[in-house]
Amino acid sequence: MKCEKAQELFSDHLEIALERPMVVAFERHLAECSACQHDYTSFKTTWQMLEMLPTIEPPKGFACDVVMEARMRREAERRAQTGWQRVFSEMFTSKLASRALATGFAVILAFFLSIQVIVHTPLRGIIGAWLVAAPRADVGKVAQQPGATGPAMAWLKSGLSFAVDSSGPGTGTGVFRLVLTPKDASAKRVRVYLMESWSPRFDEEGFKQANLVFEDDIGPNGQVIPFVIGRSREQQVVTAVIEWEHESRKFLEAVFVPTQVGQRSHGVSIRDADLYSALQEVSAAFGTMILVNADIKRAGSGINVESNSVEDAFYGVLKDSGLMWRPLSGSEVYIVERKIE
């Protein structure tokens, strides 16, 4: 056997993929050729080194970034299409037949309705009614952010304004944007953690187990931090914790975000919970986002509440804590804060 042929067989020999006669010929050559013997040993070592290459961790929040980028590109494509292009692109998909039928039905319905409108109602009145019914953003901050659409709420807390936006295309799919904006010109160091467990802990141990999705300085232009909650997961609430410094003091704020905002269950049954666990249960049961200081020293324990109304549940959870709650009008957001003495 020549050296060249022997080298071709290195992999097969190591993987025991050679026929017996070839094994004999190969090994005889190696026994006689010190160069090939050396090469074979090096080859084997190289193979072993390759198998020991370490695994690299993707960046934190990689999946979330991918999902948001995919969604934003799709939205941008849709916006770039004209109305008719969009109608046709949506019609001519794999479900062509059913969509065509539905479109035909819609056209006929629209035709009859328009006759009714023209006969019975001044057109201007119809447009006015639609405008009143259309959802509006309570706070303009989020709507100004690139990619953020639809209603959103914003709050100001110790030098940092923040909002959670769960609307726009994809509502109900568990896609959220956290929008943070400093209230002065100075950049603020901000960390955002996601906690997926029940009974979240806002101490060192809790943060160790949490998913750090953002850590950077946020300038006056603010920062949009997207995160996604999978509907298929058993967990119904994800807790976003925001940590920042303002005037040399550290602040911690938690936002309980339910996967299905606005989707209410029959009620809540809380047994022997601490304050944060109880609020998390309320968030899950009533589909409400709850914002609360995550640094409350006496977070209480032994809270028992049974209720089928969100107001009663809040009352039961907070009655002995020195805290109060208030809803932000027109939203599914509740703020928990200290009672004003």
Binding site: C64, V67, A70, T173
Partner: peptide, 12 residues
């Protein structure tokens, strides 16, 4: 989009 998120997490 949530299913896509799960798929990404599965293979990321």
């Amino acid at each position: 989009i949530a299913a896509f998120n799960d798929l990404v997490q599965r293979y990321e």
